[in-house]
């Protein structure tokens, strides 16, 4: 007995809706997102209710949860090394601010020591990076 099966025609999938949706996604990401800053992934900065404009700085220091200072991934640096660096890199001469990207779980002691060391080195302004979380109720 022969069974005649009708061959189904393979219809091509209409790709235009897919392309439309993906274009919309790109538009959404472009409008809602901002270009990534040099923010280190492992540092959660303190939240703030003050909607201050973030401008960054030419020189950024990381203060991680272990209360140690870093310039990048790798070995920690001491406050003396940081002070020498800001002097030799011309940050003090040009009057540039220094940005401190501090983990919210780090402690006040290294923060205050950093500020004192930078002031001693001649840095006029330190900007503490925060994350805006909306106005307080």
């Amino acid at each position: 007995m022969k069974i005649n099966r009708q061959r189904r025609e393979i219809k091509s999938i209409d790709l235009l809706p897919l392309i439309n949706v993906v274009f919309l996604l790109i538009l959404f990401v472009l409008i809602a997102g901002r270009p990534t800053t040099n923010h280190p992934q492992q540092i959660e900065v303190a939240t703030s209710t003050q909607d201050s404009e973030y401008t960054g700085a030419a020189f950024a220091v990381w203060l991680k949860q272990d209360d140690m200072f870093y310039l990048s991934e790798g070995e920690s640096v001491t406050l003396g090394e940081l002070a020498d660096y800001v002097k030799s890199a011309g940050i003090v001469e040009q009057g540039l601010p220094v940005e401190l990207i501090a983990d919210r779980r780090a402690h006040a002691k290294p923060l205050l020591a950093f500020r004192a060391a930078m002031a001693k080195a001649g840095v006029g302004e330190i900007r503490l990076k925060t994350q805006y979380e909306g106005a307080a109720q």
Binding site: V29, G33, P35, S52, Y54, I126, K129, Q131
Partner: peptide, 20 residues
């Protein structure tokens, strides 16, 4: 899409100025 997704930051950052 991948480039913009990975290259964008959706967190709004601010900064507090610490006076000397």
């Amino acid at each position: 899409l991948l480039f913009f997704l990975l290259g964008s930051d959706f967190v709004s950052y601010g900064q507090s100025r610490l006076a000397p």
